[in-house]
């Protein structure tokens, strides 16, 4: 293992982690706040990337292009929400259906499977060519988004989304339209995921129809690592979201490490899946083991 090249790779991992941190926050809203495993993410991330890149290639201001990507992402969440609440399709399947459908739509938007956007010709917001500035800009994005979400989930509307995810029976008894709130949560979540995709496409200089594949697993990995490491210290909602960003940074640093250790990039998906499965299984196995111990001592 080459220590020097590992250290050299860390700033890149940090900026990647910050950009994917926005996706992590989006996944947190569905997975933790709404208690909804939303598979739309893998499609909506590429949608965000495709919309932003095509808009900029067409001459749109990069910030407006980000806004457009955000709106497109929100629309994808709206579709999943519609499938689930209006048509009664189970949560996971609704997300999978949207995600599959989005593949075709993303191809239509991009025109081909990959569209490059050069930092030399376009005024990109973040680029891996200028990592220090990418770190600062993406960190600012994270801070602004966390601030907005902290405010939003402290409002009456935000509270009703939290109650919907926590206890739908109670929410309905308190006059909350749980279906509407699920759709709202999915919409916000996928908007953020698409925003993350749009930034990431600029960062790597291209939008690819397959770039969202496995994104949900990376988002989950960021959430779970953040909870294992910071769960006991961070109780404030804003800090919890910030911890997800830190989890995401850590994830990409671990990825650089295992790449240095000789794993190939195609092995990474298996690696991520194993990491997430292990951490998700951890609390369950801990409970089983402690129950067995109790039985034995009795």
């Amino acid at each position: 293992m080459n220590i020097v090249s590992l250290i050299k790779s860390l700033p890149g991992a940090c900026s990647q982690g910050l950009i994917w941190g926005l996706l992590g926050i989006g996944v947190y809203i569905t997975f933790r706040v709404l208690d909804y495993s939303d598979m739309t993410v893998d499609g909506s991330m590429a949608t965000g990337a495709a919309v932003a890149v095509m808009a900029m290639l067409g001459g749109m201001n990069p910030y407006l292009a980000l806004l457009l990507a955000l709106i497109a992402g929100m629309a994808t969440g709206l579709i999943t929400g519609f499938l689930h609440t209006v048509l009664g399709i189970p949560a996971i399947l609704s997300g999978i259906l949207t995600q599959i459908g989005l593949y075709s739509i993303n191809m239509r938007i991009l025109g081909k499977s990959n569209q490059a956007i050069s930092v030399d010709k376009y005024d990109l917001i973040v680029s891996l060519r200028y990592i220090p500035s990418a770190i600062i800009v993406s960190l600012l994005f994270c801070i602004v988004i966390i601030a907005i979400l902290y405010w939003f989930f402290g409002t009456e509307v935000g509270h009703s989304i939290r109650a919907t995810g926590n206890n739908p029976n109670m929410a309905r008894a308190q006059g909350i339209n749980t279906n509407l709130n699920k759709v709202m949560g999915l919409t916000i979540s996928n908007g953020l995921v698409a925003l993350s995709g749009a930034l990431y496409a600029q960062y790597q200089g291209s939008a690819d129809v397959n770039m969202g594949r496995g994104a949900i697993v990376i988002g989950l990995a960021a959430i779970i690592m953040s909870e294992v490491i910071f769960g006991r210290i961070f109780h404030n909602f804003a800090l919890k979201l910030f911890a997800v960003v830190l989890g995401s940074i850590l994830y990409f640093m671990i990825i650089s490490l295992v790449l240095q250790l000789g794993l190939s990039t195609t092995d990474l998906k298996l690696f991520s899946a194993i990491v997430v499965a292990t951490f998700l299984a951890f609390p369950y196995l801990k409970k089983i083991i402690s129950e067995k111990r109790v039985r034995r001592t009795n």
Binding site: F152, G154, T155, E156, V157, G158, H159, S160, A163, A171, Q174, G175, I176
Partner: peptide
């Protein structure tokens, strides 16, 4: 309690 206090009212973008 704040959730229950808004029962039957329109929930707004105001601090809860």
């Amino acid at each position: 309690l704040a959730l229950a206090d808004r029962r039957g009212k329109k929930r707004k973008l105001l601090w809860a």
